[in-house]
Amino acid sequence: MRQGRLIATGVMLAFCLFALWQALLLSLTDRLGPGPGFFPFWLALIGAVLAVALLFTTFREPVDPADAEVRILPHGPGAKRWLAIVVLLAATAAAMEIVGFRLAMLVFNAALVIALGERRWWLIAVFAVLGSFGVHYIFTTWLDVLLPAGWIWS
């Protein structure tokens, strides 16, 4: 936990320093008052100072034995489910442009419920179709939401 917090604060410090550098590339002020770089510059500077302060206080904090038990990254039997969600979402986002919302979602729905432990194939099939073709129909026809059609079909 403490180590995790230290790493996260370190990442935020790096982020602030990067923003500081980027802000310096913009003009801080011009004749008409504060420029585009003004606000980001001060924010990044304050953020960097805060991050250093947080690093310092976290470092000084006594190690709480209960905290050491807390695992930051997904672990145990749940890690597979966690990974399934992330990987399938990413794959769906990537596939949607090519095959379109309906087909990408059909596969996503079926794959995710199976990965999360569902085994009744008929329920999976009904859910996957309703959750892709059904949802697509409702959103595009009734609610005027545009969804990707997929370019391989055109």
């Binding site: 969600i85 979402l89 769906t92 986002a93 979602m105 996503f108 729905n109 995710l112 419920v113 999360l116 432990g117 569902e118 859910f127 959750g131 892709s132 949802v135 959103f139 939401v145 969804l147």
Partner: peptide, 14 residues
């Protein structure tokens, strides 16, 4: 949970 999670994610993507 399997259906709940997947269903909510469909909405998130849309």
């Amino acid at each position: 949970f399997s259906y709940l999670c997947t269903g909510v994610l469909i909405f998130c993507v849309i």
